[in-house]
Structure formats: structure tokens, C-alpha cells
């Protein structure tokens, strides 16, 4: 498949959050402010791309043909270790970046986008370049959706919302409307 097609389709057509429901927890959890949403988006992009490369290599050198049933366990351990490692490296090399992203890093381990993308890459039988493009596109799509909904939710603070719908429910309904908008990209690729 064409690399450009993969990129466009993961960002818009099959957006991981709005079309495939991966990463809905952080999508609703950290989307109160645009600033935090941007930080989370950058951190996720970084970790997803890196973890996809590493899980790809591990799958094709160690697991394939013999230990494939260990995929879930190995991948989640790799991701947890990677997140820990990135946190330590950032702390050492760039304290400013660490201060900006540090709080989001521990949250990423339990973000299903990371594990989901890693597994889907293997299932789709992408090669290394396609894997990188797909992982990058997926996380850019995630960040896009996250920043968009954060911008919308900031406006809610000055709106009158029925008491029962405050917070989560209204965010879910907003996500639904955004998802309808993203359905408009169908047929683009």
C-alpha cells in the first residue's frame, strides 16, 4: 500500500479515537485544556512511534513462528519499560521537555493506542517503513482529535449545560458529533 494512503487513512478516515475507539480514556480524561491536550499528544506521538519500531523488531526477530502466543505479555512489558526509559532519558537530557511532558508519561502505559497500534501493525503485516508511517499517522490522528475536543470543551466552561450532562456525558456527545464529522472523510482514500 502507498505510504501516503496509509498516513491519510490513519489520520482522518480511520481515526484511531473517533473511528476505532482506541485511546478513549485519555481522550476524555485529559481534554479539559488545550495546553495539556497538546502535551499529551506530543508525548503519545513520541512513545507510539518508538514502541512500534521496537515491537516490530522484537516480533520479527524473537517471537515469530515460535513464541507468538506471548505477544500480549511481551508487548506490554516492552511498552512499560520504554515509557520508564523515555522518562529517565528526558529527565537527564532535557529537563524543560521533561517538565512539559513528564506528568503524561506514566499515563501512556495504560493508553490502549500504544498497544493497539503495535498489535495492529503486526496483524496488517506491514514492513518497517509502513509500520513507522502507520504509527506516526495513528498518533497524529489521536493528537488531532484530542486537541480539537479540548478546544471545544474549553468553551463549555462559559456555557450552561444541564446538570446531569456536565463533564463526561457532554464530552461523549461532543465526541459523537466529531465522529460524525470525521465520517465525512470516508471515501477519501
Amino acid at each position: 500500500m502507498n505510504l501516503f494512503t496509509i498516513l491519510i487513512s490513519t489520520i482522518f478516515v480511520n481515526n484511531y479515537v473517533l473511528g476505532r475507539f482506541l485511546g478513549v480514556c485519555p481522550f476524555l480524561g485529559v481534554s479539559n485544556k488545550t495546553e495539556t491536550a497538546t502535551g499529551m499528544g506530543i508525548a503519545v506521538t513520541f512513545v507510539v512511534t518508538l514502541s512500534s519500531i521496537i515491537t516490530y523488531i522484537i516480533h520479527h526477530t524473537i517471537l515469530i513462528g515460535r513464541l507468538e502466543y506471548l505477544q500480549t505479555i511481551v508487548f506490554i512489558l516492552v511498552i512499560a519499560a520504554l515509557v520508564q526509559f523515555v522518562e529517565m532519558v528526558l529527565k537527564k537530557i532535557s529537563p524543560t521537555l521533561y517538565n512539559a511532558l513528564g506528568v503524561y508519561l506514566p499515563l501512556i502505559t495504560t493508553n490502549c493506542v500504544v498497544l493497539g497500534v503495535a498489535i495492529l501493525n503486526i496483524q496488517a503485516e506491514y514492513n518497517l517503513i509502513e509500520t513507522i508511517v502507520n504509527a506516526f499517522g495513528a498518533s497524529v490522528g489521536f493528537s488531532l482529535a484530542l486537541i480539537l475536543i479540548a478546544a471545544i470543551r474549553e468553551k463549555f466552561e462559559i456555557q450552561e449545560i444541564p446538570k446531569a450532562l456536565e463533564g463526561f456525558p457532554i464530552a461523549l456527545i461532543t465526541a459523537g458529533l466529531m465522529s460524525i464529522a470525521f465520517l465525512g472523510f470516508n471515501g477519501l482514500v
Binding site: L18, G19, R20, F21, P162, K163, A164, L165, F168, P169, I170, A171, L172, I173, A175, G176, L177, S179, I180, L183
Partner: peptide
């Protein structure tokens, strides 16, 4: 059956539960 329906329906359900 499509993603938007899931989001909106769950939002409304949680709203009902909250009220």
C-alpha cells in the same frame, strides 16, 4: 452501529444515570 452512535448513546445513558 457506527462510532458516533456509540459515543452519543453512552453520553445520554451516563446523563440519565447521573440525574
Amino acid at each position: 452501529l457506527m462510532p458516533p452512535g456509540a459515543f452519543i448513546l453512552l453520553g445520554i445513558l451516563i446523563g440519565i444515570f447521573n440525574s
